[in-house]
Amino acid sequence: MKAITWFVVALVVLQHGGTVCGQLNNYFYSYTCPYLERIVSSVVRSAVMNETRMAASLLRLHFHDCFINGCDASVLLDDTDSFEGEKTAGPNLNSARGFEVIDTIKAAVESSCNATVSCADILSLAARDSVYMTGGPYWQVNLGRRDGTTANKSAVNANIPSPFDSLDTIIKKFQSIGLSVQDMVVLSGAHTIGSAHCNTFSSRLFNFNSTSSPDPTIEQSMLGNLQSLCPDGSSDPNTLAPLDSVTKDTFDNYYFKNLQNSKGVLQSDQALFSTPNASTALYVNYYSNFPNAFFMDFRVSMMKLANLNVLTGYNGEIRKNCRFRN
């Protein structure tokens, strides 16, 4: 009798888009929104085809969300008269983008499955699809997250890894949320796609650390290209340098090959390989030589990131509009 009772409870929970014991699972919306992943992939594919850079933007958006208090879609919340969101925090301002794509996905999902799918789950799926559509690995996204009702701008400013941080600082920031040194190196490999504004690396080009000389860890031909692109540390948001100039729109392991050749655009990236006696250099060499290992470990680290401190069960809410609390 008890076995039958638990079966009925589990079936009812699943039919209402729930989880037993609040655990994420890959069949969470099987009954309540069966076409969810098809909807997300269709919108992401269209957005990436229209602007290849959008793949990196959606991936970064997911990262910036999960790094602060877990994956609760707090990064999507707009400021209001009575609420301060995270969009104007330093690491997000003029950097985080792709919000309109998430809006489009949410509208399509709402028309099919009203008040059912969280914005946090949409973000996680969009990040996965962005990687896959640019040539990267595919992984199963466990679902069942709920959306947060708070944001933490000060935590964004303090905790999101900065391109100016030392390697030790970046490692500590990852470890503070439960991610290892290997996770940090693997997830940094996401910079195989995407671009950087001049002001994130211009300090390396002319007067590095007040030495009146460029950063000595920059390869000379790349240095010349970056100096021509950003002669005065341009803050023009339209002036961008690809983080991987070899295969800038393809998710592959060239990010690690670039670091071996002193072609990391961001100081924080090049530090993974150029910092004396850093254990991270071993991972850089490994993933440079074994692309399949990078794909496999990236998949694992992304799933680990996406499961950090999620809200489930009756915690949080399912936002009707990702920009505002209900």
Rank of each mutant, 00 (worst) to 15 (best):
D72L: 08
D121W: 06
P242Q: 11
Y286S: 15
L266T: 02
S166H: 04
K248F: 07
Q260Y: 02
G22H: 03
K248I: 01
T275R: 03
K304H: 14
V101R: 08
F201P: 00
K87T: 06
G313L: 12
S41T: 13
R97G: 09
S288W: 04
A158I: 10
G178K: 03
V20E: 05
G90P: 03
L305E: 01
A278P: 06
A281C: 08
L61G: 08
K173W: 05
F298S: 07
E100F: 13
P214I: 10
M49K: 05
L123F: 11
A278S: 15
S234D: 00
G70M: 09
I170A: 11
L24E: 10
N94G: 04
N315K: 14
F208K: 04
S234M: 00
E84N: 04
G135V: 09
V246E: 12
K2N: 15
G233M: 00
N25S: 14
F63W: 13
G316R: 05
L308D: 09
Y283Q: 03
H62T: 10
T104C: 07
R319C: 07
S188Q: 11
D81E: 12
D78F: 15
T116S: 06
K263E: 15
S212V: 01
K257D: 12
S111Q: 13
A306P: 00
G148H: 14
V141F: 01
H64L: 08
N159S: 06
Y35K: 13
A120I: 09
S221G: 04
F256C: 08
T134A: 02
A278H: 08
N309G: 04
F294T: 03
S210K: 14
M222I: 04
N152H: 15
L243V: 11
F83M: 05
D72I: 11
A155E: 08
T32W: 02
Q182E: 15
F294M: 06
F295N: 15
V48D: 11
F324E: 07
S42V: 13
R97V: 04
V12P: 00
Y35W: 01
Q140S: 14
D103E: 14
P276S: 02
M222W: 01
W139E: 14
A127I: 02
D65L: 04
S112E: 09
Q182I: 11
Q267K: 03
N26A: 05
Y254D: 11
R38L: 13
Y27I: 07
K173G: 04
S57M: 14
N258G: 06
Q270W: 01
A190Q: 13
D252L: 07
D183S: 03
A108F: 02
A241E: 10
F28D: 11
I177Q: 12
L226P: 06
F251H: 06
G233P: 00
A3K: 14
K173I: 06
Y283E: 03
S262D: 13
A126Y: 04
A89P: 12
Y254Q: 10
T275G: 04
V75H: 05
H16Q: 10
